[in-house]
Design a protein around this nucleic acid. Structure first.
Length: 202
DNA sequence: GAGTAGATCCTCT
DNA sequence: GAGGATCTACTCA
């Protein structure tokens, strides 16, 4: 049994809890009839204005991150280092800029399509490891920023399969050293032992 | 196997 | 005009 996550899932207040619950859920994109999907095995929470690692830190509000100030259940895509498209899920309600970065997937459907997009010849652990690769494999671009996760183009669903607490681990986030002590917050969640999880603990 | 540099472009100051 | 929620390839051991 597979059901799409509804708005009430994303609009809750505890972004850290949602980040943890997203592990085991299935992210699906459906561009022009081409479907690709994967189970989420790694995520990071970005807790709004009090979180120095977030784009909305200190209440910063720009054209780029405006979508984070909207309602939960929307997509925020950001281009990093001129190369990588990073895919985020916006959570909480209006004016509260919480978001969750999807860092890794376990591929399910459309693997052939993902290989084409990433120009790989065969499936290996690097296909959807790391946020840049996840977006590339699913065909997510910055122009998709602002889409609703309640649409049919891109959404997250729950097939009843989830990971137990034993299989989930928390750690500090990756690549946010500039955020000072907020970089040490255990806001990264991942599935232990999954080969798609990026494995550089800090 | 580990460590480091380069790629590359949009966004904000 | 600088820098970033990264990845890959290449060097060296």
């Amino acid at each position: 049994m597979v059901k799409k996550l509804e708005a009430d899932f994303y609009e809750r207040k505890d972004v850290v809890k949602i980040a943890k619950e997203l592990l085991g859920k299935i992210l699906v994109t459906n561009w022009k009839g081409i479907t690709t999907s994967g189970r989420i095995v790694e995520s990071e929470a970005y807790a709004g204005i009090i979180d120095k690692a977030s784009h909305a830190s200190g209440g910063r509000r720009t054209n780029r991150n405006e979508i984070m100030y909207g309602e939960g259940g929307f997509v925020y895509v950001y281009l990093c280092y001129g190369i990588h498209h990073l895919f985020n899920v916006v959570t909480n309600s209006k004016e509260i800029p919480h978001a969750i970065l999807i860092r890794a997937l376990d591929p399910i459907d459309g693997i052939g399509q993902m290989l084409l997009r990433t120009r790989k010849k065969k499936l290996d652990h690097s296909l959807t490891r790391g946020p840049g690769n996840v977006s590339k494999a699913l065909g997510i671009l910055t122009k998709h920023s602002g889409l609703s996760l309640l649409s049919d183009l891109i959404f997250i669903c729950d097939d009843g399969g989830s990971y137990s607490k034993k299989e989930i681990a928390a750690s500090p986030r990756i690549g946010v050293d500039y955020a000072g002590k907020d970089a040490l917050l255990p806001y990264r969640f991942y599935v232990k032992g999954n080969p798609f999880v990026s494995g550089k603990p800090r």
